[in-house]
């Protein structure tokens, strides 16, 4: 069988597996991992009206994985009546972040300027993170819509990280690392993260050392959080498809190895 045909069979089967898993509508039970449980418990125990900064540090390409995490974290923040300061240190995350924040805020009847605010995007993320340690107003003199920061009720009492209980970086790359290095290490700001699964091993050492307070990782993390929160969403919907696709890949790996050893015993080399 030529490699093109093999590729075709693999892609088509994977697509069928994922689509069928969706259409069957099975519900999977996922148990919260310690990191997700820690994130949930932390937010659950924050005093009402505390200020939380949410930074949308991701590109549009990771949206399918990041969106379920953003949605459930924001829902939890608004249900707990916490106040949210949104921003983005990644150009593409700006409009997405604003849309997600507004959508969830409206679900909970929150008022812009009082319960939440979106500061927009700032390039040179290191300068922005360091600058906010001194003065958020200095880095963002205006919000996303050009309103003066001093005219926004929520922002009047917020000077710098001293007035923010936790920064949640929702990221698909190394922006969370910069939050840890510049806001965490220098200003002792607590950092939480919502990460794509591909980034989890990068941040594991920082979770172990406590520099990263906790993290919700990937679609699975979102599904676990949704269960803790008590509202099944995109995370849980995707878990059946993900499990089925993983089983399919494991089967492929096993078949590949069997063929490899069979070929090798015949003296076929590495093909």
């Amino acid at each position: 069988m030529n490699s093109n045909k093999t590729r075709w069979i693999i892609y088509s089967t994977l697509l069928i597996v994922v689509v069928l898993s969706y259409l069957l509508g099975i519900n999977l039970i996922t148990h919260p991992s310690p990191e997700v449980q820690k994130s949930y418990t932390f937010i659950e125990n924050l005093p009402e009206s505390s200020v939380v900064m949410v930074s949308f540090d991701h590109e549009a390409s990771s949206l399918p994985e990041i969106q379920p995490i953003s949605l459930i974290l924001l829902r939890h923040l608004f249900r707990r009546n916490l106040r949210v300061v949104g921003l983005s240190l990644f150009a593409e995350g700006t409009a997405i972040g604003y849309r997600t924040l507004t959508k969830v805020a409206q679900e909970y009847g929150k008022q812009y300027g009082h319960d939440y605010v979106f500061l927009g995007f700032k390039p040179q993320h290191i300068s922005a993170i360091l600058g906010m340690g001194e003065s958020i107003r200095g880095v963002f003199p205006e919000d996303y819509f050009g309103n003066k920061i001093e005219e926004i009720p929520l922002m009047r009492k917020i000077r710098n990280y001293d007035d923010i209980l936790v920064v949640i970086s929702i990221a698909d790359g190394d922006r969370t690392m910069q939050w840890i290095e510049y806001a965490g290490a220098k200003y002792h700001q607590r950092i939480m993260a919502g990460l794509t699964a591909a980034m989890i091993t990068t941040y594991d050492p920082y979770l172990a050392s406590g520099q990263l307070s906790s993290a919700v990782g990937g679609l699975k993390g979102a599904a676990e959080y949704e269960n803790l929160y008590g509202r099944r969403g995109m995370g849980n919907r995707g878990m059946v498809a993900q499990t089925a696709a993983h089983i399919f890949i494991i089967v492929l790996i096993v078949i590949g190895n069997i063929l490899y050893f069979k070929n090798r015993s015949k003296g076929g080399g590495n093909r």
Binding site: L14, V18, S61, S62, P64, E65, T196, A197, A198, M199, G218, L219, K220, G238, A241, Q242, A245, H246
Partner: peptide, 8 residues
């Protein structure tokens, strides 16, 4: 897992 999540 991450790439599959994107497809899903």
């Amino acid at each position: 897992m991450s790439r599959l999540s994107t497809l899903i």
